[in-house]
Simulated assay, not measured.
Amino acid sequence: MSALPFDPSFLKLSPYVNAASKALLGVSPTDFRYETGVTPLSTWPIVIAGTIGYLASVFGGQYLMKNREAMRLDKLFLVHNIILVVLSGGLLWLYLEELVPMLWTKGLYYAMCDASAYTQNMEFVYYVNYIIKWVEFVDTWFLVAKKKKLEFLHVYHHALTMVLCHAELEGRVVMSWIVITLNLFVHVIMYTYYALTALKIHPWWKQYVTTLQITQFVIDLGFCYSNTWTHFAFNYFPHLPNYGACSATDFAAIFGCGLLSTYLYLFVEFFQKTYAKYKSGKKTSKAGGDASNGKAEGKKTK
């Protein structure tokens, strides 16, 4: 394939990120490597401890807030969500800077499966995304401080997405970009919605954020199961149909598919419970309102 039909260099964020990375971390993204035990937050004991610490802070926080009034943290909540909109949008843009030329010149299979598609720049951005998953724990702490109802889905998703990001980094899963870019796109929209609610604006499209999340997981799983099948078929059962090697460790491939499957199930269940129940209640309320109006009008005519 030919090169891109235009020069997108003037749109690039990567030169600024490279300069910031060198200044703050002393390393360029092109030289970055996620090394277990060397890179910060890169070992399983730290990941497990972080997950346990998150859960302890959530349930401990709920206990401490039990007899206290809910905190009003609208300004902090607004700042938090604006930061996450900017981080998610910026990270998505950095992915596209790497992915668009790669997809254009080498195709989808290369970008999904070839080990050489796992560039140092991509690994650096994967790592930044992983760090953001630690930052997103703050989402739950806001809910605890404001004494909002905590759904199982929320806590489960926040606790294990950080674990998933570590597993995919350690397993050097080439197709990680599919899951992450979709997730970042959804997060730009979702955190924009929450930023608006902090401004006392309640957009009508809340339901469609959940619909978008479900769509995201359906697409993720289509690629995930396809790549996992070809990974195992190529390496262990070459007589089965496959489209070649797909770079990943066995554990990362199985864990990723399994966890994303539970996400899809829980989000669908949440959607049905929340919005089907809401619509049902709305219909019942409307019917009850009509009946009440009839009775009221009857009284007036007497």
Score class of each variant (00 low, 15 high):
K300V: 09
K277N: 04
I178K: 05
K149E: 14
L266H: 02
T30E: 13
T249E: 02
E297W: 11
K66T: 06
P203A: 09
V27R: 13
C246E: 09
T192A: 14
H202D: 07
T119M: 09
T39K: 03
S88M: 09
T105K: 15
C257P: 00
V17H: 03
L259T: 10
T36S: 15
T249V: 07
S14L: 06
L55S: 06
W229N: 02
H157C: 01
W177Y: 08
Y193Q: 07
N129T: 14
E98T: 04
V125R: 00
M175L: 04
T105I: 10
A245P: 01
I52W: 11
D290P: 02
M122G: 03
A159M: 06
D7M: 06
A276N: 12
Y110H: 11
L78P: 04
I180D: 05
T301N: 09
F124K: 03
A245M: 00
S57N: 10
L92V: 13
I82K: 06
Q213V: 01
L264E: 08
K75T: 13
F137W: 15
V58L: 12
L266C: 03
T230D: 08
N242Y: 00
G256H: 11
L13Y: 02
T140G: 05
L199G: 09
E69N: 12
Y110F: 14
V209D: 07
W134H: 01
D250T: 05
H157G: 09
L87V: 03
F137T: 07
G53I: 04
W204N: 05
P5M: 11
P203K: 10
P40M: 08
G60I: 01
K147A: 07
N81I: 06
L153Q: 12
L108W: 14
H157P: 09
A195G: 14
P203W: 02
Y243C: 11
F267Y: 11
A233G: 05
G294P: 01
A19Q: 15
L84C: 08
E123L: 03
E97S: 00
F152P: 03
F217Y: 08
V155Y: 13
P203V: 01
S176E: 00
W93P: 02
T105R: 15
I82Y: 05
F6H: 13
E269V: 04
Y193K: 03
M112I: 14
